[in-house]
C-alpha cells in the first residue's frame, strides 16, 4: 500500500524509507512530547513556582529560587536525604556482595540448579505491597519471625555458654535506630535480581581463561581474584549504577511499612516518599517538582562519580587497541 502511494507521489526509494521511518517512530515521538519532554519542561518551570495544583494555571505564582532555598532550611528534607543515603550506602554494597556470592554458587552444574535459581529469583519478582505487608509481620517485635529466630539463637547460645549475656531482638520498625536496618534486611530478600545478572556475566566468561590459570598453578581463590572478578567487573559496574539509582527511588516498601508518613520519627522518610507527601498530600506541587529535580541532580552526580572512579572496571576490548 505504502509502495503504491509512493509510486504515485513520485518519491525516491530513500525518501519513501525515511517517510516510513518517521511513521514507525511517531508513537515514540508523541509519547516523548506528552509524557517526557513536555513534562520535563513543565516540572522545571514548576520548580521555580508555587502552586497547589487545585486552581487553574493562572494561580501559579513565580517564586524564583525560593523552593530550592526552602530545601536548605527544611529539616525533613535533610532527614529524607540522610535516610536515603544511609539506605543506599549499606544496601547497595551488601546486596552486591551477596549477589555475586549467590551467583557463584548458582553457577555450579548441578542437575537441579534451575530449581534453586528460580527460588532465589522468585522474591524479586514479588517486590510490592503484598511482600511489604509480609515483612511488616516478619519484623513484628514480639511475634515476628525475625525476632523469633534471634531470640531462639540467643537462647541456644546461653544454654551452651552460660557465661554469655542473653540478648533480645530489637523493635525494628518501632525503633528509629533499627528501622533502616530493617529496610536493608528486606532489600536482601530481593538479592535474586542482581544474582541473575551476575549469573549471565559469569556464564559469558570463556572457559579457556580458567584452564590457562589452572596450568599456571592458580588455585580456585586466585582464579576468582584474577579471572572471575576482572571479567565480571563490567557487569558489576553496570549493576552498581542501576542499584544506586534504584535505591534512591525506594517507595512502595517505605509507604507500606511506615504507614505513608515515614514513621517511626521520620526514620523511614525516604526521598521519594517525601516527594510524594509534599506533592500529593500537602499539595505543594512547586516544592515537590523542585525536590524531584534535586533528586535528578543527585542521581546524575552519583552516576558521574561512579564513572569517574571506574578505573577498577576491566574492559577486555581495551587491551586489543
Amino acid at each position: 500500500m505504502a509502495e503504491s502511494v509512493a509510486r504515485r507521489s513520485g518519491l525516491t526509494g530513500l525518501q519513501k524509507e525515511a517517510l516510513t521511518g518517521y511513521l514507525f517512530i511517531s508513537p515514540w515521538v508523541l509519547g516523548f512530547l506528552f509524557f517526557m519532554g513536555g513534562p520535563i519542561i513543565f516540572s522545571l518551570a514548576l520548580s521555580f513556582a508555587e502552586w497547589n495544583g487545585i486552581g487553574g494555571l493562572d494561580s501559579v505564582r513565580w517564586v524564583g529560587l525560593d523552593n530550592f532555598r526552602q530545601m536548605t532550611v527544611d529539616h525533613r528534607f535533610y532527614t529524607a536525604v540522610w535516610n536515603t543515603f544511609y539506605f543506599t550506602s549499606v544496601s547497595v554494597p551488601v546486596g552486591m556482595v551477596a549477589g555475586v556470592l549467590v551467583a557463584l554458587l548458582m553457577n555450579q552444574k548441578f542437575k537441579s540448579i534451575a530449581i534453586f535459581r528460580t527460588i532465589f529469583y522468585l522474591p524479586s519478582v514479588m517486590a510490592g505491597v503484598a511482600s511489604s505487608i509480609l515483612f511488616y509481620f516478619i519484623f513484628h517485635p514480639s511475634n515476628g519471625l525475625l525476632n523469633f529466630a534471634i531470640n531462639g539463637f540467643s537462647h541456644l547460645l546461653t544454654s551452651i555458654f552460660p557465661a554469655l549475656p542473653s540478648f533480645q531482638g530489637p523493635e525494628w520498625l518501632g525503633n528509629p535506630a533499627w528501622a533502616k536496618p530493617a529496610y536493608i534486611i528486606m532489600s536482601l530478600w530481593g538479592v535474586g535480581s542482581g544474582m541473575i545478572i551476575y549469573l549471565a556475566g559469569l556464564q559469558g566468561i570463556p572457559e579457556q581463561l580458567y584452564e590457562a590459570a589452572e596450568i599456571d598453578g592458580a588455585n580456585k581463590f586466585q582464579q576468582f581474584l584474577n579471572v572471575t572478578l576482572p571479567m565480571l567487573s563490567p557487569v558489576i559496574f553496570f549493576n552498581l549504577i542501576l542499584s544506586v539509582i534504584g535505591s534512591f527511588q525506594v517507595f512502595t516498601q517505605a509507604f507500606i511499612l511506615s504507614g505513608g508518613n515515614g514513621a517511626p520519627a521520620d526514620a523511614a522518610l525516604f526521598y521519594v516518599l517525601y516527594v510524594y507527601q509534599v506533592a500529593f498530600q500537602f499539595h505543594q506541587f512547586g516544592y515537590g517538582s523542585a525536590m524531584a529535580w534535586m533528586l535528578f541532580i543527585i542521581i546524575m552526580v552519583a552516576t558521574l562519580v561512579q564513572f569517574k572512579f571506574s578505573g577498577w572496571v576491566y574492559y577486555e576490548g581495551e587491551l586489543k587497541k
Binding site: 506528552f34 509524557f35 517526557m36 513536555g38 513534562p39 520535563i40 513543565f42 516540572s43 514548576l46 495544583g53 539509582i245 534512591f248 527511588q249 521519594v272 516527594v275 506533592a279 500529593f280 506541587f285 515537590g288 517538582s289 524531584a292 529535580w293 533528586l295 535528578f296 542521581i299 546524575m300 552516576t303
Partner: peptide
C-alpha cells in the same frame, strides 16, 4: 536517565 519522579507531577496535572 530521567527519574520517574521528575515527570510524575506534570503528568498527573496533565
Amino acid at each position: 536517565m530521567v527519574p520517574g519522579q521528575v515527570t510524575m507531577i506534570p503528568t498527573f496535572i496533565l
